[in-house]
């Protein structure tokens, strides 16, 4: 029976991972509120390499990781450790070619992924609980490299788009042009203020003169 398959070591690793996740959650009240809304849902995670199954259950604005769950699950996700780790940090738009299969309620997966994505988690430490130090380190390196590359690509894409719109398409003003424009507006505002003050002074003088020579 599947219920009685978990070793004490796996339970220890899951307990440790759960502690790390919840430690990260402790300083993130917004995520904890989000988790509270998912209470009672069960996500089964089936890792193919290395072979491991566990269950994630949001409970009391924390996450519980369990080696056994003797009941229905809302969502079951299957894939290699690396594929699943990558999925935890990228947007779920298309699972094609991701090496991950999902059965059941995809929204639970998306909600959990969105909530966990922003947590500052020591992946190396967590993975090494299950895989040993060497594999854990290598997998964590790959995850970091992938996400580092993704971040670089996102930043350079933003820069290239900006240059294309301003320099090539001339659809938008460049930053120096904008600053020059703002400076001219400021000069104009000051000149208008000075003119207004001058007009007011002239009117005052005229009024005083009329009062003294009616």
């Amino acid at each position: 029976m599947a219920l009685f398959m978990t070793s004490t070591l796996t339970i220890a690793a899951l307990a440790s991972a759960e502690k790390m996740l919840n430690a990260a959650l402790r300083y993130d009240p917004a995520t904890r509120i989000g988790l509270a809304q998912l209470e009672g849902k069960i996500l089964a995670v089936q890792i193919t390499a290395p072979a491991l199954q566990f269950f994630i259950m949001p409970m009391d604005d924390e996450l519980r990781l369990m080696g056994n769950w003797d009941g229905d699950v809302d969502t079951r996700i299957t894939g290699s450790l690396l594929a699943l780790a990558q999925l935890s940090q990228t947007e779920i738009h298309n699972l094609k070619d991701s090496g991950v299969t999902v059965m059941g309620d995809l929204s639970l997966l998306a909600d959990l992924q969105r909530l966990v994505k922003n947590l500052d988690i020591d992946w190396e430490e967590m993975l090494s609980q299950f895989t040993g130090d060497i594999v854990g380190h290598q997998t964590a390196q790959m995850i970091r490299a992938k996400f580092g590359w993704a971040k670089d690509r996102a930043q350079s894409a933003q820069r290239l788009t900006s240059e294309f719109l301003t320099e090539e398409l001339k659809a938008l003003p460049s930053k120096p042009e904008l600053e020059d424009f703002y400076r001219q507006v400021d000069d104009l505002r000051l000149a208008v203020d000075r003119a207004a003050a001058r007009v007011e002074t002239i009117i005052n003088r005229k009024n005083i003169k009329e009062k003294s020579n009616p």
């Binding site: 307990a15 080696g67 003797d70």
Partner: peptide, 18 residues
């Protein structure tokens, strides 16, 4: 400290829910 893990396994095997 292992008694905590033994108890944890018991909770998981209980199938207890809301």
């Amino acid at each position: 400290g292992i008694h905590r893990l033994w108890k944890r396994f018991t909770i998981e095997a209980s199938g207890v829910r809301a």
